[in-house]
Amino acid sequence: MLPGEIFTKLKNDFGDAIIELNESPNSDPWILVGADQLFDIFHTLRDADEFQFDYLMSLSGTDLGENLGVVYHLYSMTHRHKLVVKVEVPKGNPVVPTVERLWRTADWHEREAYDLIGVRFEGHQNLIRILLPYDWEGHPLQKDYVTPDSYHGMKIS
């Protein structure tokens, strides 16, 4: 199924929660969705017969300046189709529902996005840092991150 068709079907089911379809020739087409109904949307995408996205290829966080974003790459082993879904949340309150219960692989991916970008995944059963030390402050891949002078007495630069 092509992203355009998936977009139309989702739009029928979820209405305003499906914000736009972007089919720029420079990248894979992607669908922008709202954060509120995110879990239900992904539940449909995984379980509805015509979608069956049983494989979450990647989940990554991005810093878009004003907003933080999360990008989901989905693949269906059955139908062999792909989909890119994006969600954006304000930097002041970057809360996105977790999809860890739908795809187990999202567990560590979400922890990484939380660790480096600072997106908080609501409902995640173990949202702690995965790469940096537990007592690290801040999220270093945010554009406005300021590198601290030292860590535990070791000079950083």
């Binding site: 940096l132 991150y145 590198t147 601290p148 070791m154 000079k155 950083i156 630069s157």
Partner: peptide
């Protein structure tokens, strides 16, 4: 050396 926020700049520092 310049932008590694997480890297110790030489093990001889510890």
């Amino acid at each position: 050396w310049e932008h590694g926020y997480h890297v110790l700049k030489g093990v001889d520092r510890i």
